[in-house]
Simulated assay, not measured.
Amino acid sequence: MLPRIALLSLLAFASIANAQDPLKSPECTAALAQLESARAANSPNVETVRRAASNACFGVPAASARPSRSVQAPIRVPPPVIEVKPRAPLPPIPTLPPPVPIERGPTISSCDAAGCWVNNGNRLQHVTPNLMAPYGLCGIAPGAAGCP
């Protein structure tokens, strides 16, 4: 059980708090009643009545009240700035060397039983089934001979 002095001080504090409570003031009660009637009637000035009730109940001056979000201008964000760095120049394309000419093998001009004559003037001896050049055997294709 609380001591008598603590109980008396609690009761005194509660009565002081109720006397100074702005929510229980007659101005606040009248403003809240006016706000309820404006809401019930779907009045277009509900926002103005709400601000007046806020001022009466909480002591907030109307000038420092936060403006409605619908009244604020939209926030504009600047577009991003994208910097394009120049590329390093490409290395020059090297020129290709000229094509290497491929020498054609000798062409067989005429043949007899002992061998064949080729277009460069050499005689290829017939060694069955191949032809023998001065440097080795020749491969034979129709009309040409591949000799070393």
Rank of each mutant, 00 (worst) to 15 (best):
L2I: 06
A6D: 10
A6I: 13
L8K: 05
L10P: 06
L10T: 13
L11Q: 11
A12R: 05
F13R: 11
F13K: 07
A14G: 08
S15L: 13
I16K: 01
I16P: 01
I16N: 04
A17S: 09
N18Y: 08
N18Q: 13
N18A: 15
P22M: 00
L23H: 11
P26G: 10
P26Q: 14
P26I: 10
E27I: 05
E27K: 05
C28W: 02
T29R: 13
A31F: 00
L32K: 10
L32D: 09
Q34I: 01
E36L: 12
R39D: 15
S43W: 04
S43G: 03
P44W: 05
N45R: 03
E47P: 01
R50V: 00
R50S: 10
R51Q: 14
R51K: 11
A53G: 03
A53P: 06
S54Q: 15
N55A: 07
G59K: 01
G59C: 00
A62K: 04
A62N: 05
A63H: 08
A63I: 07
S64I: 09
A65I: 12
R66V: 13
R66S: 10
P67S: 11
P67L: 12
S68C: 04
S68E: 15
R69G: 11
V71Y: 05
P74K: 04
I75D: 06
V77M: 02
P78R: 08
P79H: 02
P79E: 08
P79K: 07
P80S: 07
V81S: 04
V84P: 02
K85H: 12
P86M: 04
A88I: 03
A88N: 07
P89S: 11
L90Y: 07
I93D: 07
L96G: 04
P97A: 15
P98Q: 12
P99D: 12
V100G: 06
P101S: 12
P101F: 07
I102Y: 02
I102Q: 05
E103H: 01
R104G: 05
G105Q: 03
G105M: 06
P106Q: 12
T107M: 05
I108C: 08
S109K: 15
D112R: 00
D112P: 00
A113Y: 12
G115K: 03
N120E: 14
N122F: 09
N122V: 03
H126V: 01
T128P: 06
N130L: 01
N130Y: 08
A133T: 13
P134V: 06
P134G: 09
P134R: 09
Y135T: 14
G139M: 01
I140E: 10
I140T: 08
A141T: 15
A141G: 13
G143Q: 11
G143C: 02
G146F: 11
